[in-house]
Design a protein around this nucleic acid. Sequence first.
RNA 1: CGGGGUAUAGCGUAGCCCGGCUAGCGCGCCUGCUUUGGGAGCAGGAGGUCGCAGGUUCGAAUCCUGCUACCCCGACCA
Length: 490
Amino acid sequence: MGSKITSRAENYSQWYIDIVQNAGLAENSAVRGCMVIKPYGFAIWEKMRDVLDKMFKDTGHQNAYFPIFIPKSFFSKEASHVEGFAKECAVVTHYRLKNAPDGSGIVVDEDAKLEEELIVRPTSETIIWDTYRDWIQSYRDLPLLINQWANVVRWEMRTRLFLRTAEFLWQEGHTAHATQKEAVEEAERMLDVYATFAEDWMAMPVLRGVKSANERFAGAVETYCIEALMQDGKALQAGTSHFLGQNFAKAFDVKFLSKENQQEYVWATSWGVSTRLIGALIMTHSDDKGLVLPPTLAPIQVVLVPILKKEKQTPLILNYLREIEAELKNAGISVKLDDSDNYSPGWKFAEYEMKGVPLRIAVGERDLEGNNLEIARRDNFAKEIVSREGIADRVIAMLVDIQSNLFQRASAFRAESSHTVDSWAEFVDVLENKGGFVYAHWDGTSETEEKIKEMTKATIRLIPFGEGESGKCVLTGNPSARRVVFAKAY
RNA sequence: CGGGGUAUAGCGUAGCCCGGCUAGCGCGCCUGCUUUGGGAGCAGGAGGUCGCAGGUUCGAAUCCUGCUACCCCGACCA
């Protein structure tokens, strides 16, 4: 039997779907646009969640939970916020069903119409700020640093597993501060947390910067983001952090009494990452044989496979592997010993490669005799026979090496897929033929960004932080303060 | 919502034009034996309202009508 996975060269989208399905990460559900996250996929999300949650706690945040339903009237309070989300909201209008009078089944009971319709949250700013009004009275209540882990619903026209689904899981941080400076610092701090997570844990290099007005979050003053580059040359927004100014404080009348005994509106931020990160992880590292996971997020870091030939050796080999399993577990490594006898070793090799397990240890008769084992890496397929002595230390070192190799490989890919261009012809050529990040000058207007999007489908992914060299806009020739990063995006 | 397409076992499909089906095949599943260093072999077995509802006909997976669902392309998007 050959590979079940379409190659990236043949059809990148199909390759992605094949990975998600064959690695057992998720599948489409009976509900349009909504996915079922399967145990192996959810295990990855749990790891991400645990790491991020600790990072949030370490930066002073607490978790809380707000309702999934938001009264419709809340939405209209912040004008640009409604405008941004109105087109993709699910709405609850009734609260009861009844048997159809003609016996044809269950129907909505028209007598049970809600006085005020409820929106299924696409994001929680409104309900949270409505609540914060009561929580915040004086500067002593600030900063208020809250995060919630939740599901949200955005009624998307077209969906893709993990990358865009009607319902998805995420975390949303919502903070309130006494000063603009503090709020901006918070938004920047959380962007750093995301970037650190992406690079150190996902082994995925990211660019950090600011969104243009067109791409800014509905209701934000400034949106900061991290952007990663996928293997097909398209950019993926992996996390966003928003400085909301006093927009929500004013819309929901959230004021505090300052030290100087003055009523002032609070300053806000919000920030989030979602299960989309799993899509990013897949498209950053995986290959034509399946998923490739960075060791720090892999649910199984090492799989142990016995090679059983002669019946009488079976218990010896299994015992040998159980000892190795115990040793690795003691060293804090997640191990799976696959002693099932209904699949051949070859089948297991292929299966765990599909699932992206970073290391595989195989033990057969030969290894038993020499007190050895075979260890194989998922990232570069290197295989070697090593002594069983000191295996835990060796495995730990190899996991560290795989983690850094994945990051370096992704960084090298990004470097060779980043292009600096100065003419319109070059700009179009790179986007059409190479893809990747394109550093080009832009005159700073939304109109120009729109035109470029219409002509090339590329958008400004971000405006890098800091000062840059000035120049002339790649489209209009008007003055540009600095280069920005263009790309086609997911 | 526009344009195109598909619907047959858990998955992938053949059959449809030209009605004769008791619906075939591969993968997967179950049982047994032999196997096991890169997706094992043999034997036996289970599994189908042919998307739904009507119609034509001696006879419909196949022809006709209506409906429903899903997929792809476009507008919208973390």
